[in-house]
Design a binder for these strands. Structure first.
Lengths: 333, 333
DNA sequence: CTGTTAGCGCCTTCAT
DNA sequence: ATGAAGGCGCTAACAG
């Protein structure tokens, strides 16, 4: 930086101003300094900048599973929101491993990032608490904030379950089946609760069978589909709500394989709006989480919490999922 | 850090040594300092550390598409290799956007990371050249290194195409069809060349039809499958090499939908070892890239280039894909 | 093995 | 609008 100053024939402080407070320096000088910067291939040392300034222009995002498209969408949304405030977003993949998650939390802590976004795995949040105790803001993503401790962004899973089921009912289906599990998973349980509510509202006009699976994968869905295809026609549902697209995809494939027509015989709706759903012989209706929006909101909450000039109270924002109708639930008949 | 020193009743330099050169300090003192660190919730400021030490313990990885499982695998491998040398790996998603890619390159440059891994998009590598001109090492991933300029790690696509086709031939198929495109994509063209080679080696016992697609997606695969299902039986191939699993998945779905038996009537093999292939009614054979290994190699090349105590000459490491046999190519008959 | 000291590169008052 | 000086928190090299 001193080199640049010498090259441009100005003082070191002026170069600093050209970079950080362009308005404070005369047009001519500014241009001359800029030229020197280019000529010398100068790159501001962010380490020193952040050290001296006491704050970084970077946000960290620790992701539980980078293979999951929802989190990729969230990252995109957060990236965009951060970019609008001239902040950069760095990612770290904890890979569904608690130790790894805590390590990356520490890494961002040591790197003095401005704030941290955390999509946690279903485990104690000690690591986050530790980072927070150092005064670094942590916003939970796809996880409720801890009351009075941190912000969070979640999706209303119950509503999603309701929407999916309501849609099956509206399409003229009445013998419904909910597939998914294990029910100990909060999201699955909530989606089932929503399904339950929709059916209860129908006042006895519809039934809901529960078929719990051990996982939410394509193979599990294949098993579900095969099981149903093996039933006598009368015992089959006419509408299936698979609580994840992977499950729905397997289910649809196995049903078709078994000679059952989707959606004429059985309508199927999934959940998550993964590529699984769209990329199927029979495109599968689904419920989508607003990943990009979630990321944007999370980043904004974090930026707000980080900004000392702004009052901030911790809160959990609940976003709404939305119904995406495709061929797999076209009305019966 | 001064606080810790005071609390432990030692000098500031000792605290530094406890953290960085534990061997250089007496056991008792070390423990006492460690206690103080815990008691005070001290977190070493990595910015200051890197600034003072002149080098960071962090690697950056700019990824073209974080939604692609190959890159996720590569990230895992790189993460592991880096971890073994006490280095951390930070990720950035350029999202198939050149500007974004260059921005993240600059970000890592400013952050003075120890080195950068770049899985580039198919576009000029100016950004990488710029960073390199600042003396920061860049290793190209899934892209050949620029001779004399940088290292790279790639997969032998031609070999992969050969393996897939060889496997179809070995399974007793002879009327082969290669689906994929556009052929302007380097990887597709190479895979086709490998297929060509395998068929040529058969000495006229087999034929290879080329069906170029405009994309490598499930919908494109569906179109391929529907097209083939629409042919008269005699005109159909008995073995299909789809140059991507997404394509193969769509193809298999459409064939089954059209009443064709896979693999009895037509064997299908994909490429990439994505979940698409495994998660299919008929599990699809495929060719897998050694993502984890690629990541590990890339990180090691980078670390070697970064280490001034070691001689280094730029090179491109070519890794070998491997055949993964599943149900979709079980021998005819 | 311990304590002291001089920067790492930059930002930010402060005077000019 | 500009130049000079102090310090951000830490490491490394030195003298004890």
């Amino acid at each position: 930086m001193a080199d640049v100053a010498r090259h441009a024939g100005v003082a070191l402080g002026t170069v600093s101003n050209v970079i950080n407070n362009p308005a404070k320096v005369a047009e001519g000088t500014r241009l001359r300094v800029l030229d020197s910067i280019a000529a010398l291939g100068f790159v501001r040392n962010n380490l020193a900048r952040s050290l001296a300034a006491g704050s970084a222009n970077t946000l960290g995002f620790v992701i539980v599973d980078i293979g999951n498209s929802l989190f990729v969408d969230i990252a995109r949304g957060a990236q965009k929101a951060a970019g609008e405030r001239d902040m950069k977003l760095l990612l770290a993949n904890s890979d569904v491993d608690l130790d790894s998650q805590n390590e990356y939390l520490d890494l961002f802590d040591e790197a003095r990032v401005s704030g941290i976004l955390l999509a946690p795995l279903d485990a104690p949040l000690d690591g986050a608490a530790k980072v927070r105790s150092h005064g670094r803001a942590v916003v939970l993503v796809n996880w409720p904030g801890e009351p009075g401790e941190s912000c969070g962004v979640v999706v209303d899973e119950e509503l999603g379950g309701y929407l999916a089921t309501r849609h099956l009912l509206d399409s003229g289906r009445s013998r419904l089946l909910f597939a998914g599990g294990p029910l100990t998973l909060h999201a699955v349980e909530q989606r089932y609760a929503g399904a339950r509510r929709a059916v209860d509202e129908s006042g006895g006009a519809a039934t809901l069978e529960l078929l719990e699976t051990d996982r939410l994968t394509v193979p599990a869905g294949l098993r579900v589909g095969h099981e149903i295809a093996g039933r006598s026609v009368d015992d089959r549902p006419d509408g299936i709500f698979a609580s994840a697209d992977a499950l729905a995809s397997g289910c649809v494939q196995a049903l078709i394989y078994g000679g059952i027509n989707v959606p004429a015989d059985i309508a199927v709706i999934g959940y998550d709006n993964n590529h699984f759903a769209a990329d199927s012989v029979v495109p599968i209706s689904t419920v989508g989480q607003p990943g990009i929006e979630m990321g944007r909101i999370a980043a904004e909450l974090l930026l707000e919490e980080t900004d000392p000039s702004q009052p901030h109270s911790h809160r959990t924002v609940v976003t709404e999922p939305s119904l995406i109708v495709r061929a797999s639930t076209k009305p019966a008949g």
